[in-house]
Every structure is written in structure tokens, then in C-alpha cells.
Amino acid sequence: MNSLRVPLIRDGLFQTGAADSHKKNTPRPLEGLQIVDVGCGGGLLSEPLARLGASVTGIDASADLIEVAQRHAKLDPALGSRLNYIHTAAETHVCEAPEKYDAVVSSEVIEHIHDKNFFLEQCVKLLKPKGSIFLTTLNRTTESWLGGIVAAEHLLNLVPKGTHQWELFIQPVELQDILEKCGCSTKLIHGMCYNPLTDEWKWSKNVKINYALHAVKAESN
């Protein structure tokens, strides 16, 4: 999925002006930007963002995953000090780093969370004014039940059974509403579609299963 979400974040940050347009098509387009990856897991998204020059903080509530992420990061010395992992929850990190980040990314996390209002509130608190939040998640539709649970968990075994609870999936409009209440305006919602035969992700107009969202925090709350 990185072939979609990394360019989405990179180009989104150029669009908002957070990333310096002179750095387009250079080795470190995101240099100088602070990004927090909330629910970073094993660091699948944190590492590429750090390679693009950003200072990335990956946070996760699971100590085990943070350890996996740290071990994996050691395999590529080029990541250096641009990548840090902390075993913490978003609400705790808000106290340590309020309004610290140019971007918050949270990929495939919110569909596991019960109190989405509270979670997104914390995410937005981590953001500087005019900062960007990037989310990827699953829609709550019949298609996502068939594709995300029946196919992915039971037929194709792409993810372990019981990974997802369909009831917790969130529709784009609902997500947009919560973000609006937190003072963020949505700039873009894009569907993503997975082809299990070629193991490739593609952008799609169809947001019925997977989608990505980019919202920008207001200048001042």
C-alpha cells in the first residue's frame, strides 16, 4: 500500500505548502518536517517517510510492535536518527508534544478504535496549526464486509481471522464530520483498490472498501 500512501502524503504536503516546493524531485523532499505515525505497528509507513527526509516519530500502544519496528529500522543504517519509536498512546503523547507535528499519519488504525471522536481529537492536538492529517481506513459497507472480512480474512487469508470488526469501520462522511468538529477541513478522499492476483494497490474512484483521506487543521483553534 506504500506505493499509494507515501506519494499521497508526500504530494499532499507539497500541496499545502508544508514541504518546500524546491525539494520536489530531490532525494529528501520531506526534509525538515516533523511527522508522527500514530499506531505505527512494525514501522511499515514510518520508514519510507523517514527515508524521504522527514523526522518521523512512530508511536504504538503495543510494546512488542515497537520492538519489532526498532529492530527492523536497524537493518537500514541510512534511516539514522530521523526515525524514533515510542511505546505510548496518542493521548499520552499529546502531553509530551502538543502541536509539534507538521503531519499526523494513521494508517489502518481507526477502524479498530471504539472512541473515534476522542482518538481523532488527540491526533489533531498533535498537529501544528495548518498541519495535515492523513488517514487510510475501511468504509462500513456491504462491499467492505465482503472484501475486508469475508475475502481478506476467510477466503484469501491475507490477514488473520478476527483482525477486523465490521461494526467499527467508518464511512468517509462520518470521518469528515468528526474531523470538522476537531477543526480540520477535508481536502481529499480517494478510494483504494487491491488486486490480490497482482498484489498491487491502485487508486480508484470507488471508496466502498478502502479509502484515504487528507484533512488540514485550521490556522488557529
Binding site: 507515501v6 506519494p7 524521504l52
Partner: peptide, 12 residues
Amino acid sequence: AAYQGSHIGKGA
């Protein structure tokens, strides 16, 4: 791949 932040030897 590099502009996407991928490791230049690993990945699709």
C-alpha cells in the same frame, strides 16, 4: 522507488 521512500533493493 527511492522517491517513494522504499529501500532501493527491496520492494516491488
